[in-house]
Design a protein around this nucleic acid. Structure first.
Lengths: 155, 155, 155, 155
DNA sequence: TTTT
DNA sequence: TTTT
């Protein structure tokens, strides 16, 4: 059956990516980005409305995010919606929707410039990363970074 | 500040649209659509994964949805993500994400055929609609139906 | 450098796909689809504007198109723009833009029904296809059909 | 009839926008933007492929482009494909595809910084613009700039 | 050249 | 809860 589930965002990270390393050199990154829309209300005043989106990246993508993205980074994101549903202790339905990222690219500033003076520099985050996390041939975040996980789970 | 917040879906309605009429001849419709993705797991078995999406339509769009869409209808939807956040009685953060529809179009079946034998036929739903709800010049759901709300609120 | 080049179409085939088989069991399909937009002019009359798009599919995707799509089929398409530029005999620049399809899915009608009474039936086109063209495990056009070419050329 | 004709691009201007002023304070801007894709060929070498896209903007949008965009500016663009077809003197079909922009936003650098030292500064281009071209309440290019033409022609 |  |  035909189905399309696609999200396209351009926004800025509200904080540095949170990356967790899992068994088998796998990694998952959680990011929060804001998209802001400006409009004029009926008094002609400019109003800004900000929407926050939770992103999830896996594998090499998560590692690239850790290495190149930080609070304030502007990115283009393409992904799909995924809603977790569970019951809390009161037996009530709880929902949380996130965007599973399929590809992203860093916008604007060159990454070198972007990293200069960055206190969350790669060297530091490297300390908590497996040595193999950043192969020298790795793509960079200002190129398109696609999800290339080899598992058979499409989530 | 630049921002893009865009969702594109193709899926089927899980049930008839739920439409509420408000003061001033305004209306809001809530729809739930499923997008299904098929893939093969590592045993080579075909697996289907279904994601459900909550849609919200306003104004003329809501009325067209009521008139032309029903359980099973396949639609193309374009909209934006909007997450409501509130605190429940336990003081816990609760979230609910929906898609504010900006335009949609009915896919596949001709609307005449689609309406044939439809127990939620326009005549019936007309009974609970203000007379002005369906001007004879109204677009139909198999054309692109854009949000034309005149209010100054971009939600 | 960051780049996004994305096209999303929903339209109907103007004619059956034209498929050519190449060496090494490769195949290429050319399709033409129409997207129609309706609007009202300043006299309040309904006007339709149709745009035609040239699609190009490769490999397994081309074979699935040949097997399941025909004149009139409604499809969702995702792809990227690709413009060929050359000089004609008069030394003038000539351009031709097509959409390299990355994924597509058939909309609306069930494929079985769609094929019924189709004079361009698979059996006939099979005569000119390598035997391996349609493995029994092939996806169908009413599922998402992604480009899976293994070559290293992103065109 | 259902139809979707959508293009999404992120790229950089190859040159300053070319803006023409028409009767009635209307304006049209032509821009050319490049989207670059990087991939590895079968020798493992990094290859870049650049695609050029012709954009067309009208009205206020064109004027904002003139004021804020220049060679090298990175923009997000949303629009629709439009192909002109005509016959040349030899009676041969000629085609030219462009993207009619529906909305765009400037990416990366803040506009103030972007304008600093810009030799195509607003003051200069103002000289050739009707006085009413840039109302003080005009949106800026780093907000989303939507097409708001009031004519009834969807081209 | 499609579709409604 | 849809669809195939």
């Amino acid at each position: 059956m035909a189905g399309v589930n696609k999200v396209i965002l351009v926004g800025n990270l509200g904080s540095d990516p949170e990356v967790k390393y899992l068994e088998g050199d796998n990694a998952v990154a959680n990011l929060s980005i804001a998209t802001t829309e400006a409009y004029k209300n009926r008094n002609g005043e400019r109003v800004e409305q900000t929407e926050w989106h939770d992103l999830e990246m896996w594998g090499a993508q998560a590692k690239i995010a850790e290495q190149y993205l930080k609070k304030g980074s502007q990115i283009y994101v393409e992904g799909k919606l995924k809603t977790d549903k569970w019951q809390d202790e009161q037996g009530q339905n709880r929902y949380r929707t996130k965007i599973r990222v399929l590809s992203f690219t860093m916008l604007g500033a060159k990454p070198d410039g972007a990293m200069g003076g960055n206190t969350n520099a790669p060297q530091q985050s490297n300390q908590q990363r497996p040595a193999s996390a950043a192969p020298t041939s790795a793509p960079k975040a200002q190129e398109m970074v696609s999800d290339t996980e080899d598992d058979d789970l499409p989530f």
